[in-house]
Every structure is written in C-alpha cells, then in structure tokens.
C-alpha cells in the first residue's frame, strides 16, 4: 500500500456526503489519508445539478457542473465521491471537449481557460490496483456488494473503465466474504424515494429481500443515495445493516478513530459488528 509522501488531490464531496451521509464523508477522508492522499475540498463548490437540473433543465445542469470544473485547480486530479455527481461532471467535461462553442461560453462565463485534461476520479479509481496484503480484519463478514446504477453510464461514457468487482476484491482481501446475488446493479429508486415513495419502496424491499435470501449479513453500498434510500424505505421485518464501502475499508485498514459515525445509521450495525468481533 502506498504510504509514501502525501499526494494532493482536490475533493468534491457533493451535497449528500456533506449532509445526510457525513459518515460516508468522514470514513472516506480517513481512508484516503491512510492511503497517503491529502484531500483539499474544492473551494465553494456547488451542487452538481443532481437528477433534478439534469432531468428538467439539462442546460442548467451542464452550467452548474461547469462552475465546479472551473473551480478545480489546474493539473491536480479531482476526486468525486458520489457516482451521480461524477457522471454529471464527466459528461460536462466530455461536452466541453467536443463542443467548441460551449468551451467559448465557459471561458467567457468563468473567466479562465477550460482544463480539458483535468483528471476526474471516482473514489473507486483511487482504490483500484492498491497493493492488498491479505488480512483477516473483517472476520468473515458476509456482505452483498451493491453498486446500484453506478456502473451504468450514458453511451458517451460507456468505454470508460468499469469497476465492477472492486468491492468484492478489496473487502475479500481483508477477510470479508461476498455473497452472490441478483440485485447488485439494480437502481435504488433515486429521487422517487422522496417524490414517489409508493414506487421506490417496493424497489428497495426487493433489493434487501434478495440480499437477505442470499445469506448476506449486510449490504455494502458504493453510493450515499443508495444507502439513504435503503435505510429509509425498507419496510421488511428482517433487514440487515447497510454500510458505505468506505466505512468497511476504514475498519479493514484500522484507520484508528473511534468511528462514532455508526451511530448515524438508521439500521443499527452495532450488534452485527459486535457479533463479528469488529470493535470500532
């Protein structure tokens, strides 16, 4: 594992990690620090536009994403934690690359040249390819790896590397054991959880039911919105705790703080962690 001199990276947390999923944010920052990355939060970042701007006012969504790109210091990779934010930022960059008029508007609007080579990284990309020394810190925890829709991308980004299997590979390396199940790439319902719960509720229940039926002791999410939707909309009697990927990594790496963030979960993970001998 790379524990050499700290590498500086810009960081875009996004609205979910800044508010409802602070536990995701804290654990992710800890894991990055442990890996030797120093994160500098993008100064004065704004919402990427979320599903709402991109869904009903795509131009506004594009411009909101562009403002964030314009704030990124040149030549320093930009780490994005949220799978949805990163799609919006990457799609904006992709359009700037092929649309000269849009690039000109951007430069007039933000008063600086576009950094078309800005490297926009998802958290998974930082974790991909790290040297993993087999360890048993996760004590055989049986987890259902849940990617939601993060692996599905619009056609213009479909040739980019896909990180399917990364959660299984890394967490297994640290002594957890992944189960096979059918819903690992099923969408969680996103905003319908708020705007149309009667549709999102059954979607979430099917996901959790399949994880339970497949023998999972917990579900691991790659996205803060998936995490929230499952926690608030699951109405099944038998549920399992839902972890952010970064939370389990921080246990695996023994990053060292008291991890009081687990108290923020709606489905209490403490009994499971205790039964697995995972003191936090």
């Amino acid at each position: 594992m790379n524990k050499a001199a700290a590498v500086q990276i810009s960081y875009f947390p996004g609205c979910s990690l800044a508010t409802t999923a602070k536990e995701n944010n804290q654990s992710l920052i800890e894991v990055c620090k442990y890996m030797g990355y120093r994160l500098a939060e993008l100064k004065d970042w704004n919402c990427c536009g979320s599903s709402s701007a991109h869904g009903i006012k795509p131009e506004l969504g594009f411009n909101l994403a562009c403002r964030n790109l314009s704030l990124a210091p040149e030549g320093i990779p930009l780490l994005v934690a949220c799978p949805s934010c990163i799609l919006h930022l990457k799609q904006a960059q992709s359009r700037l690359k092929r649309d000269e008029a849009a690039t000109k508007d951007y430069e007039r609007c933000w008063g600086r040249p576009v950094d078309l080579n800005l490297k926009i990284l998802h958290f998974f990309e930082l974790m991909d390819g790290i040297d993993c020394l087999p360890n048993t810190t996760l004590n055989g925890l049986k987890f259902a790896p849940y990617y939601g829709c993060m692996l599905a991308r619009p056609p213009e980004l479909r040739h980019e590397k896909n990180y399917h299997g990364l959660m299984e590979k890394l967490l297994s390396c640290y002594g957890a054991s992944s189960i096979r199940w059918s819903y690992s790439s099923r969408c969680c319902g996103t905003f319908l959880s708020a705007a149309k719960p009667e549709v999102a509720g059954p979607m979430v229940n099917r996901i959790v039911q399949n994880a339970v039926d497949s023998g999972a002791e917990c579900i691991v999410t790659a996205c803060a919105m998936c995490h929230l939707n499952i926690e608030i909309r699951c109405t099944l009697k038998r549920v399992v705790p839902i972890f952010h990927f970064s939370e389990l990594l921080s246990i695996a790496f023994k990053t060292g703080t008291n991890k009081d963030w687990f108290a923020r979960h709606l489905i209490d993970p403490a009994p499971l962690l205790k039964s697995k001998g995972l003191t936090v």
Binding site: H54, G55, C149, P154, P155, C187
Partner: peptide, 27 residues
C-alpha cells in the same frame, strides 16, 4: 418516472442515450 439511472442505455444495442431523450421530453 424515469430516474436517469442509465440502465436502459447500457442494455441498448444501438447505444441510444435514452435518459437524454427522456430529459428532452420533460423539458
């Protein structure tokens, strides 16, 4: 009801950006 999850475009053999079509229709 379309959430823009892109599952459809991933499965589309013609690589149509269906989520973008839905956005255009909503707008």
């Amino acid at each position: 009801l379309c959430m823009g999850c892109n599952t459809c475009s991933t499965e589309c053999p013609m690589a149509i950006d269906i989520a973008a079509v839905m956005s255009a229709l909503r707008e």
